[in-house]
Design a protein around this nucleic acid. Structure first.
Lengths: 344, 344
DNA sequence: TTGTAGGCGTTATCAC
DNA sequence: GTGATAACGCCTACAA
């Protein structure tokens, strides 16, 4: 024991150099063994109250911080959960992420966040990467194939959101009620020829919505057409105006608010009166939907609650009994000013 | 070597059970040493091309995935960066986060995300927690005191954003140009009595903006008053209307768009004509600002670029030479329809 | 070029 | 109740 580095810890330039205090340091400081320290800190009660107190005291004094990474090695549990989202350009996801993060941090999990920029390769890579460091993965609006997702789900707990995949846990808003209300609303106003402004063809949710709208319209005797678009964005919604006008529909259900608002804006630019000439219904109820004139009639999507529920589901898959979410996941029509009876 | 567990790896129920393949497994499989495998995978070139190829091949075959956590233990580098934001309820931060995440993932870093819900204790805990697992921290709109931040910055690389703290790296948009343009714009329109709808008193950025506006107004001979609010939100902006009307100002500069839009909405509800009776200028240029009628005149805040720049700065502090950001951080006035000459 | 040995900070399984 | 000791998966001198 010659030339013990002494207290090099505190004074090496003072910045970013002192290496962290470990349970080993504590043990040495107190003439105890590292295992005792570990136990005292993790399984309170299994150690004499007195020594436990001493240890906690010393830990505070020396500024001990547990190194979660080191702990993750023997246990295999990192208490990290990953959120991978295919496209984060829609502000609607904002609340989803907040909800998921809130639940995660409340239960002592760290949330890692990645956007895959719509690329399936990027997405699959990200997931595989993350799977080795996270306890579970939350896939939001994934662009992967069902079989890819099923395969990924075999390795580690995984939950998909805004989508359903056979054999994989999933959490999505109940879009049916809101959509039904929307179609009934239009029907009640007298619309008999309606357009569905479509989302991404590869999106499960888009096909799901289309099917619901289709069935509902058929059963009410409404003619319905699907109007394809390039992307689920504001601009793409605006560019759809030609197809919409050409179709002769009197009302439009849009895949999301971004598209509806883009279309609304373009209508105004081109002098198409909303709602007199064309009724418009969005989806999500993002910030901004109620700010326009006319304010947008839309379907409220409880994305904060969906994010919470999805994270809770994931933690359940991980094995952390976490209780159930509170908020309802049902969507609901919010009638504002962009819908009215069709002009004859 | 009796009862070697054989190939238990593949068949234990098939799900979530097979423990990951390690460099050790590869080494054994190839009759090499783990270190050779490690080198082949990390420092290409330092190993004979032939064996390196064999190793890579085997890695692919056996589905080897590096365990970043295990690697982080000896090196102390996790390639994790943490983003802690005090309040994520303003959609303006949306783009900031996207920018930061993009840069991080492009450089092979994983982004962990935490919202501290406006609570300084939560924030400081989160940072300390994260400091042991992350290579660096990005603090956005921190509610901590300068001295707390300075102290935290001594442990690990840390960058503050939307704020300046002596001795700590920081990245913030240049608000001066946009604010100057805004004041000049109002001055040019003939306004001589202006209100500043204030942000959080504890916010560095709020004080910074107020000082800039104050100086600019004084030098132009404009009377300026600071109108306090409860929170930087839509509702709080709406509730400020009484103070605004009572003050007699002819124009308002709001701390952010949320507040400006809230105030705008309330003006419309109460029959105050914007811009005829009251001119309104926001800040940030969030989605929604151009959707209102009248569309909101506001200051464009390049938050995506700020997020990128902040992350690049952080990586630089970490020691990862990462190049410089491209986008300008200057703000700029966007004149729309919520400003006009004051009615006499 | 490749192998050996030790350590990173924690947890877990034994003894005592 | 407490203490050795051996993992966990990877990295890195140092040795061969």
């Amino acid at each position: 024991m010659t030339e013990e580095p002494a207290d090099s810890s505190n004074l090496r330039g003072g910045r970013k150099t002192r290496s962290a205090v470990t349970i080993y340091d504590l043990a040495q400081h107190l003439n105890l063994s590292p295992s005792t320290v570990s136990r005292a800190l993790n399984k309170p009660g299994r150690i004499s109250a007195k020594t436990e107190a001493r240890i906690r005291e010393a830990a505070k004094q020396l500024g001990y911080r547990r190194n979660p990474l080191a702990g993750a090695l023997p246990t295999g549990k990192t208490r990290i959960v990953a959120l991978v989202i295919s496209d984060f350009s829609n502000p609607a996801y904002f609340e989803y992420v907040r909800g998921a993060e809130k639940v995660a941090s409340q239960l002592g999990y760290t949330l890692v966040f990645t956007e895959s920029q719509e690329s399936p390769e990027t997405e699959i890579n990200a997931v595989q990467q993350l799977q080795t460091s996270a306890d579970g993965i939350l896939l939001v609006a994934s662009r992967l194939s069902d079989s890819d997702i099923q395969e990924l789900a075999e390795t580690k707990p995984l939950v998909v959101s805004n989508r359903h995949v056979a054999g994989v846990a999933s959490v999505a808003p109940e879009v049916a009620p809101g959509l039904r209300q929307a179609v009934e609303h239009l029907h009640g106003l007298g619309h008999r020829y309606v357009g569905y402004l479509s989302g991404p063809p590869a999106s499960w949710m888009n096909r799901h919505r289309w099917n619901l709208v289709l069935n509902e319209c058929v059963s009410l005797g409404i003619s319905i057409v699907e109007v394809p678009t390039e992307a689920p964005t504001h601009d793409s919604g605006a560019r759809a105006i030609d197809r919409i006008r050409a179709s002769g529909v009197t009302a439009v259900l849009a895949y999301n608010d971004l598209m509806a608002l883009g279309l609304l804006k373009e209508c105004q630019r081109q002098g198409v009166a909303v709602p007199d000439e064309l009724s418009l219904i969005g989806f999500d109820n993002i910030y901004g939907a109620e700010l326009t004139t006319p304010a947008l009639t839309t379907v409220q999507n409880p994305l904060h609650a969906v994010g919470e529920a999805a994270m809770l589901q994931l933690l359940k898959e991980i094995g952390d009994e976490a209780g159930n979410g509170q908020g309802s996941l049902a969507t609901q029509l919010v009638v504002r000013e962009s819908t009215s009876s069709p002009r004859l």
